[in-house]
């Protein structure tokens, strides 16, 4: 790696990326940079193109135009597995855990599978480092007291928290979350937002959310999309003061 690359505060940047579905242009030239150790929120009304943009960032979709640079490297058009191998982790849209294993085992399995797979003879519990690391991750997402529960029996909100612990277990360099609070009760939503806020600055997080109010308190930078274009970008205060953003969100169902 060339000297100086590490000083670039942006871990990920998109340069005029666009995406068309047939003749429909879902995204028109989005340029944005995402900084290390920061929480950036992507907001916008329904159909703004948030999920489409998210899918470009996670490699699930290839852009129709423009470039995506991760740590200074052009990764446009790479397969999704390569994105994952580079350390770009995303939360699954549908909850994706190991339902029959305990909460602790869910996280421990992911941690251990990164390093030890081909041992047929030792006990899987003979590696205290993974047991301890799993316990620490569970503590971090607020599931410390639920470690011995079978994961499938957790409440919805707890399962989403477990998923975040599992995503963190793969030690990602960048964590992408698409509406992690979807389907949650207000209390669960509140807990999840506190959890996400606590991930920075240890992790770099990009959070997609359509409820503007939720992210204003925790995001350091906010990107507002509207009709597939950047409507505004800035700190929460700048976004709140932005007339255009207010106009778009006015009369919107706000929670």
């Amino acid at each position: 790696m060339a000297p100086g690359v590490n000083e670039d505060p942006a871990i990920l940047r998109t340069e005029a990326v666009s995406k068309s579905f047939g003749r429909f242009k879902a995204l028109a030239g989005i340029s944005c940079e995402f900084h290390r150790g920061r929480l950036t929120a992507i907001i916008g009304p329904n159909g703004a193109g948030k999920s489409t943009y998210f899918n470009l960032l996670s490699g699930a979709l290839a852009p129709s135009g423009g470039r995506i640079l991760f740590e200074g490297r052009d990764i446009t058009g790479l397969a999704q597995a390569r994105f994952a191998a580079l350390g770009i982790a995303k939360s699954f849209q549908i909850t994706s855990i190991f339902p029959e294993l305990t909460v602790h085992e869910n996280v421990r399995a992911v941690l251990q599978a990164r390093e030890i797979r081909l041992n047929f003879w030792r006990s899987r519990n003979a590696y205290p480092q993974f047991v301890a690391a799993a316990a620490a991750l569970l503590e971090r997402v607020g599931l410390g007291g639920r470690a011995r529960v079978i994961a499938g029996r957790l409440a919805h909100g707890e399962q989403r928290a477990l998923e975040i612990a599992m995503a963190l277990a793969s030690r990602p360099r960048l964590l992408l979350l698409d509406e992690p609070t979807a389907g949650m009760s207000p209390e669960e939503t509140q807990a999840m937002m506190i959890l996400i806020a606590g991930l920075v600055p240890a992790h770099t997080v990009i959070l997609v959310e359509h409820k503007m109010k939720l992210v204003m308190g925790i995001a350091e930078r906010v990107l507002v999309l509207h009709h597939g274009e950047v409507l505004a970008i800035g700190t929460p205060d700048e976004i709140r003061a932005n007339d255009e953003v207010r106009r778009v969100y006015l009369g919107q169902r706000e929670h």
Binding site: F98, P99, A113, L118, W121, R124, N125
Partner: peptide, 17 residues
């Protein structure tokens, strides 16, 4: 009960994960 056993469990429980 080994680490490989754990990996087999992962595959059985949730292949995508």
């Amino acid at each position: 009960a080994s680490p490989f056993g754990a990996v087999m469990e992962m595959v059985r429980e949730n292949e995508a994960r």
